[in-house]
């Protein structure tokens, strides 16, 4: 660990430069992807990004804090519906003010995504406050229950299309806002936020809660508040992923956010290693790619998928990385060990 120096204007300037470079890099990559890859592969690249957001966000509560949610599809649904709805209602006004085009689309999409994140965060808070007093299996089951209730609410909300789903106001369905640039920009933002939380005093306290809640309390850690905070942040990230997911297709249906979706998210973080951010990134990509590659296997696909999950749990329950992180020093240590 390096020391922590005084932060000067120069450091902030460096940060701004690096950030601009990253944004430009994503933009350039996006152009390359659009030009060089067929649409099918482009779709997988977008799904990878969305999965990373889902996995890294879920890992904050399930992996880092050790409070197991198996109902996050519900928060993804809140984000998806909120983003789609706000986007559709906002678009005409913004287009009138800024002129229709990429700028107006970008503004509408990101405002809608932020509203989606906010609302799913609020939903996370509302679910988290009563639920997080429970532990282990009980917490898992309550989150499952809440996830199903959220889905059933959308299923029965006429303004959002009930069971048929929400397709916006135009017959063409929801606008295709979701692009490489926006998905991967949000990937970077979400990963950075979660990483910075994890490696801070709050993050240490979250891990302490996972390791031994009673000892954490004896160290004056406000465990409930921290758990609720982590749950809320986690729900908000799921909401962003939901919003990005919504505008990848013409519409969203309640059945897109069934219990199976929550399971997918759990499989991602388990494959990579519960409690590891880099593991969650790997798991998210792995799931997007494998599920797509196995599409040819048709009905055998889901059987193999479930079998894989069971085998992983029996053979290597800690996943690829365990709670470790991939970093330069990790590779150095590996090399040194040989």
């Amino acid at each position: 660990m390096p020391g922590h120096p005084q932060l000067g204007t120069k450091d902030w300037l460096i940060r701004v430069v690096i950030s601009s470079g990253v944004v430009a890099g994503i933009w350039g990559l996006g152009l390359g992807v659009q030009a060089g890859l067929i649409e099918y592969v482009q779709r997988i690249v977008l799904l990878c990004g969305i999965n990373i957001i889902l996995a890294v966000g879920l890992n904050l509560i399930n992996g880092t804090t050790g409070q197991f949610s198996i109902g996050h599809a519900g928060f993804m649904a809140v984000g998806a519906y909120a983003t789609a709805f706000v986007g559709v209602k906002l678009a005409p006004g913004v287009a009138a003010a800024l002129g229709a085009g990429a700028l107006a689309d970008g503004v509408v999409f990101n405002v809608a995504l932020l509203v989606g994140a906010l609302l799913s965060g609020v939903a996370g808070l509302a679910v988290g406050v009563p639920s997080l007093r429970l532990k282990g299996d009980y917490l898992a089951i309550v989150t499952l229950g809440f996830g199903e209730i959220i889905r059933l609410v959308f299923n029965n909300t006429k303004a959002l299309g009930s069971a048929t789903g929400y397709f916006g106001d135009s017959p063409a369905g929801l606008p295709p806002y979701t692009s490489f640039f926006w998905v991967w920009l949000w990937v970077v933002i979400v990963v950075l936020i979660v990483r910075n939380i994890t490696f801070s005093q709050s993050g240490r306290s979250l891990i302490a809660i996972r390791e031994d809640e009673i000892a954490a309390e004896a160290m004056a850690t406000p465990t409930t508040r921290l758990k609720v905070t982590a749950f809320t942040v986690s729900a908000a990230t799921a909401g962003i992923a939901g919003g990005l997911f919504a505008h990848m297709q013409s519409g969203i249906r309640p059945e897109d956010f069934k219990f199976e979706k929550s399971i997918d998210m759990i499989v991602m973080i388990i494959i990579g290693g519960l409690g590891s951010i880099s593991g969650a990134v790997i798991g998210g990509i792995f799931l997007a790619v494998t599920l797509e590659l196995m599409r040819d296997l048709q009905e055998y696909r889901l059987v193999l998928y479930a079998l894989l999950l069971v085998i992983i749990m029996i053979v290597r329950p800690e996943g690829l990385l365990g709670t470790r992180e991939l970093s330069l020093s990790f590779f150095k240590r590996k090399a040194g060990a040989k």
Binding site: Q201, I207, E211, A215
Partner: peptide
């Protein structure tokens, strides 16, 4: 009741 997977330093910092 230590935080078993955390380092010695992190245990104290918690």
């Amino acid at each position: 009741r230590l935080f078993r997977s955390m380092t010695v330093e992190q245990n104290v910092m918690v």
